[in-house]
């Protein structure tokens, strides 16, 4: 059996990895709620933005916060440009054709980042070390891990605040619930969808920048987190943002338990298994009610 401190450590590790899954899931969820499209280019958009940060850091030797801001700005522009130039142009779009559109962009961005930045593995460093640790209440955690947990928590609070307490956030929620009613009340659904892509891209970029130091920066950076984030979103329910966050943490916990008790090697299979299982048992996810749009 595990003793108490082992259990706490396991939970903290899960929150650490789960934060990344939750952010990637949130990024997908924000777009999904606005347009009912799971954006499979999310990972590559985030990777590309992280490459921008890397370039600003290494080539131009700028301090980290400059690179961070430039990268987020780029992410935002990438998001709104993708929506404006590709998604909106689709003629008589169906959900399937939109998904294929995002997969197309994913391939373009994947190829482009390999071509522009190279396919070699690069070390991406944040000002928080992965190897220096602090001990809080008996749990040892790396600076990077702590920064990841705190940064994601702050970001989630910001998103919540934005959606609940701002005029634009209210417009976004209204548009998600009933786009027709939102439009006749003067809310432009184009603007809402556009903004959703921008915000989502920023959230994805932050997740990628927190994740990149753990492995290395290459065009493949977000392959795995995207799958996990997608699984988290399916688990928690795409239609519920808090559900997605919990889905991320729970997925990480299940993964760690699986690694501990069964096999470390096949840990990644867990996410796939969960996607399949949830789709069998409760397709709308654990935390979201299923809305039936009336015709």
């Amino acid at each position: 059996m595990m003793d108490f401190s082992e259990i706490v450590t396991l939970i903290v590790r899960s929150v650490e990895t789960g934060s990344i899954y939750a952010l990637v899931g949130l990024a997908m969820g924000i777009i999904y709620k606005a347009s009912e499209v799971p954006n499979f280019a999310q990972g590559e958009m985030a990777t590309f933005s992280t490459f921008i940060a890397f370039m600003v850091l290494t080539v131009h030797g700028a301090p980290f916060y400059v690179a961070f801001v430039v990268s987020l700005l780029f992410a935002y522009i990438l998001g709104i440009a993708f929506e404006f130039l590709c998604v909106r142009r689709a003629k008589n779009p169906t959900i399937l054709s939109m998904i294929i559109l995002t997969i197309g962009l994913q391939m373009v961005l994947y190829g482009l980042s390999g071509w522009v930045f190279g396919t070699e593995q690069r070390a991406f460093r944040l000002p928080f070390s992965q190897f220096e640790t602090v001990e809080i209440g008996g749990v040892v955690i790396s600076h990077l891990g702590l920064a990841t947990i705190i940064a994601s928590f702050v970001l989630m609070c910001l998103i919540y605040w934005f959606l609940e307490h701002t005029k634009t956030g209210l417009a976004m929620r209204a548009s998600q619930q009933n786009s027709m009613a939102a439009r006749i009340n003067g809310i432009s659904s184009n603007r809402v969808v556009n903004l959703s892509f921008g915000i989502s891209s920023i959230v994805g970029a932050i997740a990628a920048m927190l994740f990149a130091p753990i492995i290395t920066l290459s065009p493949d950076l977000m392959w795995d987190p995207l799958l996990k984030g997608f699984a988290a979103a399916v688990l928690g329910g795409f239609a519920s943002l808090p559900g997605i966050v919990f889905g991320g943490y729970i997925l990480a916990l299940i993964e760690n338990l699986f690694g501990l008790w069964f096999s470390l090697e096949y840990k990644s299979v867990v996410a796939m298994g969960i996607i399949v299982l949830v789709l069998y048992i409760k397709p709308s996810g654990l935390f979201s009610k299923h809305y039936q749009r009336k015709v």
Binding site: L170, R173, A174, Q177, N178, A182, I184, N185, I187
Partner: peptide
């Protein structure tokens, strides 16, 4: 009826003030 079904009456009418 096209209302925001997950919001209160107050919030629904408040959304009419959006513009």
């Amino acid at each position: 009826i096209e209302l925001f079904s997950n919001m209160t009456t107050m919030d629904n009418i408040l959304l009419g003030r959006h513009m």
